[in-house]
């Protein structure tokens, strides 16, 4: 019974409410590294994610439920299972992978057309800036056709998950937007 009341109150005051954030992107873009950079602030060695990782982290008094979905071609079709009730999408792009920019752009726009994601904010990480030959944020933005996006708060941030650059800036922006949207 006590459990029941406490969960009632939690709901009333919005305590314990978790915001759902998805990290998407092609395989090898650095999604899992970013997730654990956010969670424990360290670089972990990762293997291709078959399925998903999910971590709950508190950031600026908000409880975030961050989902990192695998980016393999075989798993991409199942992203849609996770779209419901999503507050924001973090799309990670490997800035050095010029050949697959087109694929990334296609996946991104396909995803954003989904009904369930109409209210979700979009943050793009132009990742792997530490690597030589990485495209800059504006170049990536052009490749991904981000300017075409209407009626959506979006931003692109140059980042390096390995060095930890740009990640918190991006997340700060995202949290501000979400706070606005959620009152």
């Amino acid at each position: 019974m006590g459990n029941f009341f406490s969960s009632m109150f939690d709901r009333l005051w919005g305590v314990n409410k978790e915001l759902r954030i998805l990290i998407l992107g092609l395989d090898g873009a650095g999604k899992t590294t970013i997730l654990y950079r956010l969670q424990i602030g360290e670089v972990v060695t990762t293997k291709p994610t078959i399925g998903f990782n999910v971590e709950t982290l508190t950031y600026k008094n908000l409880k975030l439920n961050v989902w990192d979905l695998g980016g393999q071609t075989s798993i991409r079709p199942y992203w849609r299972c996770y779209y419901a009730d999503t507050a924001a999408v973090i799309f990670v792009v490997d800035s050095t992978d010029k050949d697959r920019m087109g694929t990334a752009s296609k996946e991104l726009h396909l995803m954003l057309q989904e009904e369930e994601l109409q209210d979700a904010a979009l943050l793009v990480f132009a990742n792997k800036q530490d690597q030589p030959g990485a495209l800059s944020a504006s170049e990536v933005s052009k490749e991904l056709n981000l300017v075409e996006l209407k009626d959506r708060s979006w931003s692109i941030v140059a980042s390096s998950a390995i060095k930890g650059e740009g990640i918190s800036e991006g997340l700060d922006w995202l949290i501000d937007v979400i706070k606005d949207e959620q009152l």
Partner: peptide, 13 residues
């Protein structure tokens, strides 16, 4: 059977 692949990562972890 197709969706099971989503569980793999959790199993391994």
């Amino acid at each position: 059977p197709e969706l099971c692949i989503l569980a793999v990562n959790t199993f391994v972890t």
